[in-house]
Design a binder for these strands. Structure first.
Lengths: 224, 224
DNA sequence: GACAGAAACTTTCCAGTGTCAAGATGCAGA
DNA sequence: TCTGCATCTTGACACTGGAAAGTTTCTGTC
């Protein structure tokens, strides 16, 4: 990461040129480019990411990123796949615990807030290629983990109820992260996302009860 | 909207040129440009929106949008402000009803799904200018309406509990819309967002109960 | 060590983009 | 009719993503 790089101005464009201190082959350019892209997204937003800028940061020519990832979409796809891997690893840790549902929900929120550079890209199919096999595999794995955790957390009888609970829980944590990242949650919640999420969890109890009251009898879950 | 327009190829760029059938002054170019931009976002995503393209759609020169909105950010800001106005109007209708919480939640989801061109921009402060007074006013008004509805729906005792419930409910509906729009919800939920949202509402009851079980006693809401 | 092929990276070019400054046009009020 | 001003166009600039073709280095095989 700290190889000496030299940026040289030539022919009106800034480009990186191999020098005695910096070899022609970067070594691990792929991961360096991803790291640069994630950092760029975190500081300036996904909309302002530029292949040429991350190439500059990595000290290579402007066409190097395209060569490694096939294009801008490829960069986003790689970021999304890596992000789902990180998310799965992080949420999977809490699988066995008795309070697995809550712990997983908090892990999801912490991941989204701490790694917004990944998180923002993961849910934007207009940026990445959702049909990419590697990405699809990582995404499915992350979802399976979440799904299973909700299954043990809510004692849902039939598969439909389990699915509904999973969608509800997922929507709640996902929405919290998106609103938090976009700065739309009330300021009184404070700066600590974990504490704020705990408050929201308390609120979720009231919301569940209100939902139960407002759903008409035939719309209520049949099991009870 | 249906004024005759003529696109002419000149000097290598396509531009619109006033003709006998199309006056120099468009009339309501501002709203025509917003409409074109929203349509473009819905079909190609916010990332691919181009000022020159919406100018082409509206039949004006490529610099006309920048003149009206100050720049690309200005277009997004205008869309976001209009979007919050539409959302407030739509959720505000259900204010008095006994099942206001559920009705408002469904209205929120329907708005997001039907008007994704607005919705996607509203929560992306990297695209628009969040400090714009008009946008801030529209956003605050929409949030107030939602906040008040949750207050009557959940019989929350103290202001903190009300705020927590509001954040929880908002997170849930918002997350549902985002996941729905990004195509990440399980296919078994079907095509109809309203029906799927009702399923998720059923799931929310189970999630509320599970949260109540998993929160430690001192973390539980004190009121009961 | 010499060679060949593949992989990594650069160079050069192109069409397209957002933004800016300057100009042209038409409207609204005096 | 004249004047000021908002509306819109023209032309230029620096920047972008992508494609094609070239150069450099690595890796394996003899």
């Amino acid at each position: 990461m700290s190889t000496e790089l030299v940026n040289v101005k030539m022919f009106g464009q800034t480009g990186a040129v191999p020098t005695p201190t910096r070899p022609y082959h970067h070594g691990n350019l792929r991961s360096a480019l991803i790291a640069a892209a994630v950092a760029e997204i975190e500081s300036a937003g996904a909309a302002r990411l530029s292949l040429r800028e991350i190439a500059r940061r990595a000290g290579v020519s402007h066409a190097a990123p395209a060569h490694h990832f096939g294009g801008k979409t490829g960069v986003f796809t790689a970021i999304a796949a890596e992000g789902f891997g990180l998310l799965a690893e992080r949420t999977g840790r809490r699988a066995g615990q008795p309070d697995a549902l809550l712990a997983t929900a908090l892990a999801y929120i912490e991941f989204g807030v701490e790694h917004r550079g990944y998180f923002e890209v993961m849910w934007r199919p207009d940026l990445h290629d959702a049909s990419d096999p590697g990405l699809a595999a990582a995404r499915d794995r992350a979802f399976e983990i979440f799904y299973a955790t909700v299954g043990t957390g809510t004692d849902s009888a039939d598969p439909d109820a389990l699915r509904d609970a999973a969608v509800a829980a997922w929507s709640a944590v996902h929405g919290f992260v998106v609103l938090w990242l976009s700065g739309n949650l009330p300021a009184e919640l404070g700066r600590d996302p974990a504490a704020a999420a705990l408050s929201a969890a308390r609120g979720m109890i009231a919301v569940g009860r209100a939902t139960e009251r407002q759903l008409s009898p035939e719309e209520l879950p049949s099991s009870e």
